[in-house]
């Protein structure tokens, strides 16, 4: 399988933005895949596998995040991360 890169933009739709709990969900999801996954916002790019990185990215409610995945399983990884964003990180 070839190396593929996928880039997608997501809006942060939960009430509090990316705080500890959503960050932990993202890290757990990303940790399952071998591909490199990054989240970028306002020129700041952090690994989606770093919890402290995600906490510093200032994922305000309503802000747009660019997620990039590079590697063999990028497709699956992106699907799972998309699910988290779309479902507002399963928060009310």
């Amino acid at each position: 399988m070839a190396e593929i890169e996928i880039i997608k933009n997501f809006k942060v739709m939960n009430e509090y933005g990316i705080h500890a709990r959503p960050a932990a969900l993202l890290v757990k999801a990303a940790g399952k895949y071998s591909c490199d996954i990054f989240i970028e916002k306002d020129g700041n790019k952090v690994s989606c596998k770093s919890i402290l990185g995600l906490m510093t990215i200032e994922g305000f409610p309503g802000s747009i995040m660019q997620v990039s995945a590079l590697g063999e399983d990028a497709q699956d990884a992106m699907a799972e991360i998309e699910e988290l964003f779309v479902n507002k990180f399963y928060e009310d």
């Binding site: 509090y16 500890a20 309503g62």
Partner: peptide, 20 residues
């Protein structure tokens, strides 16, 4: 520590929403 950091982040994030 974990909770305090989380509270700090939430407070910054939600302030950001008001600003926007």
């Amino acid at each position: 520590a974990a909770k305090e950091l989380d509270d700090k982040i939430i407070s910054r994030l939600t302030k950001g929403r008001v600003r926007r």
